[in-house]
Design a protein around this nucleic acid. Structure first.
Lengths: 191, 191
DNA sequence: CCGGTTACCTGTAGATCGGTAGGTTACGTA
DNA sequence: TACGTAACCTACCGATCTACAGGTAACCGG
């Protein structure tokens, strides 16, 4: 099965790419260092992904596939599953670091991941709004519409990740996220 | 006044560096492109800042000076001034982009801005808590303590910036921030 | 007016990087 | 068993980037 071997290699390369991007970002990640991690030469790697950008695209596509199958975009999500996602992320600093680094880079001009993130966040906002509507209806306890709360929910998740990555001991990411959800939900429980 | 000329040049270089970092990030910003923007050769620039990292440090120090004098760290801040800051930022995408790009890069291993951001966010959280305490006392209307709300406030500001940078037309950054403040404040006004 | 410092420049070393060209080996298939 | 192709490798090119070495011209204080 030559095909299986090949797919396996590709998966290895993508995994290595995730690691190297987490460590040095996309711009700082050299093809050579990714190749080395899977026991290939840089040119050997280029056999699987013809350019560096193609490798990045493959990384992002894999992420997309994971998100939509696993899956973040899947319907039927609820707020408490988002909570679990944050808890899951808190145990996978590598993944979080990879995509936080990429998000940061993507705001620079002409970055190959820019379009990906732009469209992705548009989608995420829609999904968040759906989740919120499912949970609270047209008006959140706080008075906001799901559409107005969605960017906030998204922002909190990303913003907490940066603070947590910079100093995990200083921020209880899942705890802070739960605090925010309680805030959104109108904080029925009051002192 | 040779001193004045020199200080002026340094300021020009720092301004150019801000621009180039916004466009390509720190790793992608070459000394040559910064130098070109102020009409110097790359080696001429190295006369003012002996290494690339020294240039970055100077950029960060200038930011710190601006923050603490202008001054974000200044005491006596109130929530409504934070609101103004967000509005101000919404008119300065360049600055926002520079520091969002740097923040993203800074989570990668051994990045020269990492320590800066780590300490900065620790300080910002303390300041945010102070502001919140000044406004709401020991318990926010939502039930949180200032210390628990501070990371959320910080996260919202940063997260909104990324969404806004990726697609300014999709996110009303100041509006969303006001929404969040209303949420924090317990949303006295209800439908 | 002179000596030193400031403010640059040219030249270049040394490394790294993405990508091309072209070869070789091994394997699966007919 | 012969052939095509997949899976690599070596060699190399050109560009780019940081930094060092060393020179020069202008300027400023004494």
């Amino acid at each position: 099965m030559v095909r299986a071997r090949s797919e396996e290699r590709r998966a290895d390369i993508l995994r290595a790419a995730l690691e190297v991007i987490a460590e040095r970002g996309y711009r700082g990640a050299s093809l050579g260092s990714v190749a080395e991690r899977v026991g290939l030469t840089q040119q050997g790697l280029l056999h699987y992904f013809p350019t560096k950008e193609a490798l990045l695209v493959a990384v992002l596509e894999e992420r997309d596939r994971w998100d939509t199958s696993g899956g973040r975009d899947r319907e039927g999500w609820r707020l408490d599953l988002l909570e679990s996602l944050v808890e899951y992320n808190a145990m996978r600093p590598g993944i979080v670091q990879t995509f936080s680094a990429l998000l940061g880079e993507s705001v620079t001009d002409g970055h190959p991941a820019r379009e990906f993130f732009t469209e992705r966040y548009a989608q995420v906002r829609v999904n968040m709004a759906d989740i919120l509507r499912l949970e609270f209806g047209e008006r959140l306890p706080g008075g906001l519409t799901p559409e107005r709360a969605a960017p906030l929910l998204t922002a909190v998740m990303d913003g907490l990740q940066y603070q947590w990555l910079l100093d995990p001991s200083a921020v209880d990411m899942p705890g802070a996220f739960r605090d925010f959800l309680r805030l959104l939900g109108g904080s029925e429980e009051r002192g």
